[in-house]
Design a protein around this nucleic acid. Structure first.
Lengths: 207, 207, 207, 207
DNA sequence: GATGAATGAGTTTTCATTCAT
DNA sequence: GATGAATGAAAACTCATTCAT
């Protein structure tokens, strides 16, 4: 992220790497891991295949780097918006809004992200799965802490484990994102986060 | 399903088809679409590859048939349990319980089902997506009708569109299934459906 | 070797295999292991690459099969001529003559055979080396037994270990073959085996 | 060899060249021509690949230079020991002893040398073969002259052409070296040169 | 009608060589 | 003059699909 303090060569390399990952992201998002060839990626990034292999040991590693960096970027974007509010309710609102914004800018990437984090993917042999899931859960724990705090402060009722509430909220958002992805016109992602949050906040059944 | 009224030959063929699909399911569940070859499927089903191609135009179609029939079987199993109760709350409880049971028996298949219905899969080129999603939404609409009815009867508060509530509930269940799949010991799927349903039923915030 | 008792299919397969090995032999003899591609072999044998891989797991195995079968064929041809004589001196004469004949018919193969059995080759990764050398030494032991017997009968003086004499004689023949291979006109392999054998039989120094 | 009379730059370059060849020798000896990359050689010699190409037109030429210089070094070492004796028998003894010593110090190189001079190698496309063989025969002729002289002086019987005797003796030594290379414990190269020479000197058959 | 051998396009990956810095 | 990043041709190998038996 911070390119300062790097030699020109190093900065140059970083930029090249980003270009390759960007090309790969676009292709993988569109067609999936197995339907994209290294030649295709190289061509799109406007490098020779050999150059691709200078930056990534093999296709699997390229993919893994891509997914991990993507997840980190998303998770960082999401957690950072949480920090921007004090009130737990506001934090959750920020989370839902951020989720919308992050993916609105990256709609094509949404599928890829879901396929890997939620989709029980078979795409890449092994290891990625584990690594990416660990990151996901680390991320969920940070969302869970919002619920935890809200409960301690007495703002939230203890209707379920904070961790499960985090997963529930995230999965709720994902459902709406998926609906939106499928039919943007018919199922727009609500601009008002409370449309989604009310499902959690308000009881379906009158107490 | 109903084999009556068919010639012996036709019945025979149906059985063969099932055998092929069963072999394919096992392999795809374990390794994913791209890591299974037609030869492997043929060998497991104890047919020649050529015979496989008599029944399915190509690998994609075989996969598609498999997923579609799988989804139908699951959706039928789930909706049938809904019908077994009169009370809407009980119907939702049955839904959650059925979800648990359906996948407890088919744990290896869970990944495959998720990859396709929820995972924004890239496994197969195109077309499957559309068809499988349509079926999924038809299924969601039948779940939505439970919420709809509950609202009409005044049992449920109108905290969100019935359809969105259906998607929300299903996605909630899926989250728990996924947690269970990843770490069966640590995150068992709750035997009591209310653990999950309370997230919907009870408001997080005290009204 | 004996194709009888095989199904037509099996015989057919054996013939195909031979065709592939023959094409490979010609190419490897001419250019060496690393300068021949599987596509080239397939093309020369008039099969598709895929078919090649049906018969040989990989390039290494194809090469190994080739060399091992080649060595066996040569060694069998050589040892069989030894058996055709009773007198040890005659046996050695037969050996030298057979060596000439075997390679006169297979001149292009000579280089390949030498590269592997005598050339301390790096061609193929591992295993072949060991296996081919073991066969070579088994073969040398059978030649050594001729010297051994000749000594026991008092026909030969015990000027060196029989095994070393076998290796010496073979290496002597190989030198003449190599000279012949390089300059057939200038250094023809002697038709009279005694030209070579005298180097062993007669002392350079007058006792 | 004689670096005098050269500019500093020229001497410097000669040194670099030697370093590159030394690195290449080590790698080729260990893994063979095709399993060593130019990058590997450059890295081992601590130069950039580009620099390697300043000194050698391509990989083939580098290899060729290496082998030719290697052969010259060995042949020079061997012929020089011949010169150190007056008696022809002693000269041959010196030859056998020198052969042992030369390769004892360079055991890893032995394979490479054999592969090229005796192994009918395919390592390098063309040309090397011719050049290296010419040198080998020039070397053989100088060994042949020992036999020639011995015959003229009446010390040796004329059991074969001097040139063929030279080739025979060398090939005899090589066989023992090869046995030694394969199983140093089981087949040590004899310290006493007569163990080998007796095969030539003494007749196998009692005159 | 079933079979499975044969096909060959397509994939990942390596590495000798060049050339801008 | 040295460097080493970039190149892309070429290799080994796989597998969906066909079709003669």
């Amino acid at each position: 992220m911070a390119d300062e303090g790097l030699s020109r060569r190093a900065r140059e390399n970083l930029r090249r790497r980003e270009e390759m990952l960007a090309a790969a992201l676009e292709l993988f998002s569109e067609k999936g891991y197995h339907n994209v060839s290294m030649h295709e990626i190289a061509a799109k990034a406007e490098f020779a295949v050999g150059t691709l292999y200078k930056f990534f040991r093999n296709k699997e590693e390229l993919y893994k780097s891509l997914i991990v960096e993507l997840a980190d970027r998303f998770h960082e974007a999401l957690t950072s918006t949480i920090r921007e509010a004090d009130d737990e309710i506001e934090q959750l609102r920020n989370y839902v809004k951020a989720k919308r914004e992050v993916f609105a800018e990256n709609i094509s990437v949404l599928r890829l992200y879901f396929a890997e984090t939620r989709g029980a993917s078979f795409n890449v042999k092994a290891g990625l799965d584990r690594e990416i899931r660990e990151r996901y859960h680390r991320f969920m724990r940070s969302l869970a802490s919002v619920f935890e705090r809200g409960m301690r402060k007495g703002h939230f009722r203890r209707i379920a484990e904070p961790y499960y509430l985090a997963v529930a909220l995230d999965s709720l958002c994902n459902s709406f994102l998926l609906l939106w992805l499928e039919a943007p016109e018919e199922h727009p992602f609500p601009e008002n986060p409370d449309v989604i949050l009310d499902i959690l906040f308000r009881g379906l059944i009158n107490a």
